[in-house]
């Protein structure tokens, strides 16, 4: 189904949602936009955030074996982040904490109409989704709304025309026009274990793990006990990630750990699931303090 809502009424719509649910969206905190709880419709801004909303479904640290999950709506989600959840479903879907939250956290996609600085989503799936709960596209004075879910439809919605959809499609095509598309041809087969980039990257990587934490598709976690049992996001870049009792370590050096990170995304996960564990969101590139760039890895194989 297709609707549209004027920008003016959109704020009222957000207020309507806030009346019924806890609503989150991008909010400026300090110098960056991050997903935060919204208090009213005026606070909403359709801006790509520094971090994805991964933590709203898969928190950085959580107590295991809990079953108390609240229903929330997240506005301003981008297609790169939404796609990432589809990927995480294939791995974390058997986990009850993850799958329970996945059922009660509603992610509303806001289609990008301009490329972001580091993103390369057009290499994979682009800014529009084919599967969504609610999809909003800025078409000027209005948002076009695509949905098959009547739960979130409101009286403020107006009928949309095919022309409105045409404008929305044009707007998203703008991203394709301006963004460089990388060549992924048979990359998972062509990318080798050996690549001079691992050593090169390892000379400047500071093992901060920010790439893992900013990545919407990174799923690795550690489990530890502190009275109760917890899990916490882990980072394959850290030395302890694969260390065994007695300090034996299959990846004792940083170049081997960087190799693991890139091969997991561009080779191993593809071999298991037939897609790359990357949505081209560009967040790892943006956040890396020493300019390690996954696009360089892809280009080193397919110039």
């Amino acid at each position: 189904m297709m609707f549209k809502i004027s920008k003016k009424n959109f704020q009222n719509y957000v207020d309507f949602l806030i009346g019924k649910y806890e609503v989150w969206g991008p909010k400026k905190i300090g110098s960056d936009y991050v997903f935060s709880k919204l208090n009213n419709g005026q606070e909403f801004e359709d801006v790509r955030t520094v971090l994805s909303p991964k933590d709203l479904i898969y928190p950085p640290n959580e107590k295991l074996f809990e079953d108390n999950f609240k229903e929330i709506i997240v506005l301003g989600v981008k297609s790169c982040d939404y796609r990432a959840f589809k990927m995480l479903d294939d791995v974390l879907g058997i986990d009850s904490n993850y799958s329970m939250r996945r059922r009660v956290v509603h992610m509303f996609n806001f289609v990008c109409t301009e490329p972001c600085k580091f993103g390369f989503c057009t290499t994979f799936y682009g800014p529009r989704l084919e599967e969504y709960e609610m999809q909003f596209t800025d078409i000027g004075d209005y948002y076009l709304i695509e949905t098959n879910d009547l739960r979130f439809v409101n009286d403020l919605f107006e009928k949309a025309s095919d022309d409105d959809l045409k404008i929305a499609l044009e707007k998203s095509k703008n991203v394709y026009k301006k963004m460089q598309k990388l060549n992924m041809d048979k990359l998972s087969e062509k990318i080798g274990w050996e690549n001079p980039l691992w050593k090169e990257f390892s000379q400047r990587c500071i093992s901060c793990g920010a790439c893992n934490f900013a990545c919407p598709t990174c799923f690795c976690f550690d489990v530890y006990d502190e009275n109760d049992r917890y899990r916490e996001w882990d980072s394959c870049i850290l030395a302890g990630f694969s260390k065994l009792a007695g300090n034996a370590n299959p990846r004792p050096t940083l170049d081997l750990r960087l190799r693991q990170r890139f091969l997991h995304k561009l080779k191993f996960h593809y071999e298991n699931f037939n897609y790359y564990l990357c949505t081209g969101c560009g967040r790892c590139i943006e956040i890396c303090p020493v300019n390690i760039d996954i696009r360089d890895v892809i280009r080193s194989v397919n110039p």
């Binding site: 690795c220 394959c236 694969s242």
Partner: peptide, 19 residues
């Protein structure tokens, strides 16, 4: 084979050998 292992069910990402 032996690797560092956390979950035991293929989701924590620690014990991989290649794919």
């Amino acid at each position: 084979m032996e690797r560092r292992m956390k979950c035991g069910i293929g989701i924590c990402g620690h014990c991989n050998i290649g794919k």
